[in-house]
Amino acid sequence: MSDAVTIEVGLGARAYQIRIGKGLVAKAGSEIAALKPGARTAIVTDENVASRHLETLTQGLAEASIAATPIILPAGEKTKSYAMLERVVEGLIAAKLERNDLVIAFGGGVIGDLAGFAAGIARRGMPFVQMPTSLLAQVDSSVGGKTGINSPQGKNLVGLFNQPKLVLADTDVLDTLSLREFRAGYAEVAKYGLIDRPDFFTWLEKNWREVFAGGAARTEAIAQSCRAKADVVARDEFETGDRALLNLGHTFGHALEAATAYDSSRLVHGEGVAIGMALAHRFSSRLNLASPDDAARVEAHLQAVGLPYRISDIPGSLPPAEKLFEYITQDKKVTRGALTFILTRGIGQSFIAKDVPQSEVLAFLKDNLAE
């Protein structure tokens, strides 16, 4: 374990560690045995991850004498549903896991969100470990305790804050991701630079090819992202203040995901975030908050790595601007009807903008849909 990078999420009695390194799936048994001696586990995962990595995990757990019950779900965003939540909770109860046993969320962001939510409500709360298998989950959704499912009315509208006991991010498993999935996760990496780390964004502009290729640059990018998120979560665990900055690009992005009915063949979460970040910078320029050069720089980087950055990059037809606007008003970042956006004054200068005029947003959406 000495070659793993360890980052502390400082939350007092609920503090936990993020470990980033190679081979952590196979070594998970010793980690979990130390964390919860004598605990039995349920592994919540999806069909894709199970076919590639479940045997390695269960073997590692068995070597540490840890019993494991797999709960294997369909892959994809549509799994973040009431029906699948019920399936996981009932699976935990059927396995006769007790309140102090352990749930392992072994997958991407969908599985992490769903399993963390199920752990938070089964038997009035069970501890869980995040083992993220996608880049997006390793740098974002596995850290910070946000868990939940989607409602037909919008993304992530049902859930709770539930911090994991440990995050194990095995960089080896990223080699099995498709290029599209890796790119989608990279959008969240770039986000940290655009929020408040302009030097990191500049580093990514120079080193993104090495991040994609793997090795030291990839580990560095993941570690920097996790440090950035851990810092924000430690300051504002329940998103009452500047944790909202982590939603850069998400208000637009979530609306676009809802508009495509969470059809991953058309748009996955990270792609929605990429378009959303470009829109946030473009909207900031339109409001004379930032230079159009900054928006152009963001778009150029997203385009260079192969990410979509315009609404028109989404295949298929989309609803009119009024419907997209309706999805935005359903977003969790609306307070008493007032729209809150994460906007920017430049690269790495994001801020929380409250009371954004609804007429400006609607006009902006109409213009961008017409591109």
Score class of each variant (00 low, 15 high):
E77N: 06
P320T: 02
Y262I: 03
Q358S: 15
I7R: 15
R282D: 13
I66S: 11
E299F: 04
K146F: 11
Q138H: 05
A13K: 13
S291F: 07
T171S: 07
E8M: 07
S30L: 13
V233R: 00
Q153C: 00
L73W: 07
G270Q: 09
T56L: 11
L114C: 02
T58D: 14
L256M: 06
A119R: 01
A122N: 06
Q163M: 13
R123L: 14
A296V: 12
Q138N: 11
D293R: 09
D46K: 03
I222T: 05
M131L: 14
N368D: 15
A39E: 13
L168E: 04
L204S: 10
K36T: 13
V88F: 08
A370N: 09
P132W: 03
V158G: 02
R19Q: 11
S359G: 14
R209E: 12
A304V: 08
G60A: 11
Q17V: 09
D172C: 07
R282Y: 01
D175P: 00
P164S: 10
I275A: 13
H281V: 01
I72R: 05
V298P: 08
H269A: 08
K146P: 05
A105R: 08
P320E: 14
V268F: 04
A321D: 12
I71N: 03
G214E: 11
L343Y: 12
I342Y: 04
D46I: 00
A280D: 07
T344S: 15
R266L: 05
Q130W: 00
R14S: 13
E63L: 14
G270P: 05
A255P: 07
G144T: 09
L362W: 06
R336D: 12
V273W: 01
L92W: 04
G76K: 04
L73V: 07
D231P: 00
M84T: 15
E220I: 10
P127T: 04
A221I: 11
E257Y: 02
A290Q: 10
A321L: 10
A296F: 07
G249Y: 10
G116L: 01
F252N: 02
L85R: 01
L61M: 13
L24G: 05
A15S: 15
V232Q: 00
R218N: 06
R52W: 04
V298A: 10
K354V: 08
E360K: 15
S225W: 06
T260N: 04
K366H: 13
I342K: 02
R99Q: 05
A50H: 06
Q163G: 04
E8N: 12
G316P: 10
E237G: 01
F252K: 03
A290D: 09
L54M: 11
S285K: 01
L245T: 00
V298H: 13
H281Y: 15
K333D: 01
R218E: 03
V129H: 08
V305I: 15
L246I: 00
K191G: 05
D236A: 05
P315S: 12
D199G: 13
A105V: 02
E98N: 12
E63H: 10
H250V: 12
N48F: 05
I18L: 14
T79F: 08
S359V: 13
I347Q: 13
H53G: 01
T176R: 07
A280I: 10
I195Q: 04
